[in-house]
Design a protein around this nucleic acid. Structure first.
Lengths: 318, 318
DNA sequence: CTTGATACG
DNA sequence: CGTAGCAAG
């Protein structure tokens, strides 16, 4: 079964593998061309420019892996190689789909050099949702969930406290087929999360990363008109995104850095979305306004395969 | 997904493929050596001796395919090649795991030259059980089930009437984990099936083939001592096999032909059973005593892969 | 289309 | 270990 998986990945995801070949998705990008004063990442390598050697900074990667065990079975994927190539300090994962009983075995083998890892699993539905933060640096404190039992049974949120900020890794509930969960998502989850972030912000700036399950604007989705009633692009979710996050002082770092970039972080498996770049930008780094000018770059790594999402990155000057 | 399946089959089932390479399973066989007057099949090719050109006969193959759609996806499997190689007149399948809605598409593409096919599916549990008979010759009549509604909802039995016999293709209920279904299996199914066969026998001889889910004697299983409480080798099932079938005048054709052959037709996937020949003989051709001397040969084709069972064969002189 | 849990073998 | 249906995305 291992071998089978690995071969299939090679076959079906050819070109979106570890060798960083620049594939379709990027060719239709309309990033601003690099120009004098450009701070964005290189549209050819899709990697950010180096940070000056004397500038203290931290590098974050955030990735909805759509099942961590499946990812780790892929021959085309190596966590170690990803770490060496991207050199992140902190890795945030969403949709690990792990059960509590599987966490220990995985945490110990996943990544050497990142000895601080914090995992949360859905206790209501096994093998569903699940998030984790894996860090080189030991945080000052850890919190699982937001302290509201209605929102904390699906392993969707981990908060780490560092010296200069809180880092929140979140997998926002999908509104689901027929938008059955839209009321919960908008009326309860998003508002509670916004409140929780504002609470934390009273002591330190906040970074929220993860799959926020909302493509904010038309530029963030391949077919805006056709998806007005699709989970993740309803007016309600987009409005909620603005009201609860942007309107409360959190900055969409990628969009701020790359105002005109058509760049996606998710491509559904269903209709060859990745091949045809029928994507959505659902994965974010939002930061408190007070630290938004410390962003060296926010970026997306669409060449990293193994999931229906690609990782997104943030480099923050300290 | 197609490609994936096919590759995996090549890899995991190497050696048990279409090229008829004689693999492990057979090397420990203790068939009687071919000798003067030997009528059994060649232990090297595992195929029966030819029938004299002027002897009218029919050739039957019977196979628990463990999911027909999965089998047909395998690159290593071709129904046409199987038909050409084995030249059967009638093919009986068990555990097709088809739903009614999938039958038509499959029946039309499965085998040219075998235009008479009769399919039955479980209506109680979708994708469970299911049997079929595929024939060159058009039968005189067809019957699905045995006319007892308690036993007819899982698509386990098809009866075809030919000129000189009834052919029953059956997938006997597995007694299940913890032997939870043993009482039903013994007390209801086996007895009802025996009665049904005796009823039919009043008009014509009967042939029963299929996965009878019982290894009759110690010789029919790799580890008799360790499986005394395993479904398929309990004393209750073995006794029922004798009482309801052998004791009522139906002959185990393979065992009659090859009294000392250690030969299996099933190897569980769970512990590399096929590789190590940890097998069971669960698949049979039983025939009415009145035609038991018309058996040219009964045999097993352990070199045919793609399922946890191998096909079994019968050649009957007419 | 893909993951994972579950039933069944 | 493997097939299949199911929920979920």
């Amino acid at each position: 079964t291992r071998v089978e998986k690995k071969l299939s990945s090679r076959i079906t995801k050819a070109g979106v593998t570890e060798n960083l070949s620049v594939d379709e998705p990027w060719t239709v990008l309309t990033h601003k061309k690099p120009q004098k004063g450009w701070t964005g990442y290189d549209p050819k390598t899709m990697r950010p420019p180096p940070v000056a050697a004397d500038t203290p900074h931290m590098k974050f990667l955030s990735w909805n892996v759509n099942g961590l065990r499946a990812l780790l079975k892929l021959e085309s994927f190596s966590a170690l190689q990803l770490a060496q190539r991207e050199d992140f300090d902190v890795l945030c994962l969403q949709e690990t789909k792990l059960q509590e009983k599987d966490v220990n075995a995985i945490r110990e083998t996943l990544l050497q050099g990142y000895d601080n890892s914090y995992w949360t699993c859905s206790v209501s539905k096994l093998g569903y949702s699940g998030t984790a933060i894996i860090s080189r640096i030991k945080p000052l404190s850890v919190r699982y969930g937001m302290g509201i039992s209605d929102h904390d049974s699906e392993g969707r949120l981990v908060t780490l406290e560092f010296d200069n900020f809180y880092l929140l890794n979140c997998y926002v509930p999908n509104s689901g087929d027929g938008l059955r969960r839209l009321p919960y998502r908008i009326g309860e989850w998003d508002t509670s999360l916004g409140n929780y972030m504002k609470d934390l912000e009273q002591s330190k700036p906040v970074i929220l990363t993860g799959d926020l399950n909302c493509a904010h604007e038309e530029i963030d989705i391949f077919n805006p008109a056709g998806n007005k009633r699709s989970a993740g692009f309803t007016d309600e979710e987009r409005k909620s995104f603005e009201t609860n996050f942007l309107g409360r002082g959190f900055v969409d770092t990628f969009r701020k850095q790359h105002p005109n970039a058509v760049a996606y972080s998710y491509w559904g498996y269903r209709h060859g979305g990745r091949r045809t770049n029928k994507g959505w930008r659902l994965d974010y780094f939002l930061v408190s306004e007070s630290i938004s000018d410390k962003v060296h770059d926010a970026y997306i790594l669409p060449d990293v395969g193994g999931s229906d999402h690609s990782p997104v990155g943030l480099i923050l000057k300290l």
